[in-house]
Amino acid sequence: MRAYTEKIREIARRLLEACTVERVLGFRRGSVPMMNAPCFVKTPAEAANLVWDSNCGINLANYLTSRSEKIGIFAKGCDSRNIVTHIIENKIRREQLVIIGVPCHGMIDRHRIAAMADGEIREVVEDENNIIVQGDGFKKVHNRHDVLQANCAVCTHRNPVIYDELVADLVEEPGDVDRYRDVREIEALSAEGKWDFFDDLLHDCIRCYACRNACPLCYCPTCFVDESRPQWVGKSQDPVDVRTFHFLRAYHCAGRCTDCGACERACPVGINMRVFTKKLEKDCLEKFGWEAGLSLEARPPLDAYRPDDPDDFIR
């Protein structure tokens, strides 16, 4: 990862010195372990603050919405797919971007690692294969693959799909991953079983909307839950309102979600709301052969009519 960081600083410095871009969007080291903070670098000197490691799980495409500058952006596989989606949805223009692809080895799950530690974690360092966790009186070494974010563990698009240059050689992408085991398990439940499963899943939700706000797809100027004229959804902690928020948000992401995992990562109470978006992702793949953000040319299934639509009610 040190090689990535050096290369990233070098590229950012070069782009800013040559005025190829006005700003570079990357990560700087955070103030607590396993936390890097998105940052906007404006001068070549500031490029020295940039870092790259396995704690860059925030999706940087989220910071591109409706910007007017010329921007250099570091993009993992999922980020690059959300950049494509942003371009298709006219949230940014391709010409405004210099995309620096970052072939991805997967981001680590900070919540899970913290839960597995025998005390407060004071420092986390990594080498090629291991994540070394240290705290007062304990040290744990995890194999990187065992502590990947849940979405990264089943990711099949580790390499950026669109880029102007790369920070390293492309990585090997696992082909035969079972991406949807969790979704199938829920599909197999009875209606009542599903109801109870979601009840339990959302029990702790505090409607902070970190999941929505961390998501590059959720850029509506006024989200349906915030609309007050008319008010579509109650604003209290009533379970029906909480559930309505989650279901509707997921539907708004149908055919657009890249399973980047930024939503789940951001949740302060550890809710796996990705099961909703994954179900829709699975349906899009199975019914329309569609995976979001892979091409600037193809139109997403929900904004195109096809005579061979798999649902017969619509023909």
Binding site: A191, E192, K194, W195, D196, F197, F198, F247, D311, F313, I314, R315
Partner: peptide
């Protein structure tokens, strides 16, 4: 979603 099959239906008319 936990809604019984049949309660929600789609048709194109």
């Amino acid at each position: 979603m936990g809604i019984e099959p049949g309660r929600l239906q789609f048709s194109w008319i």
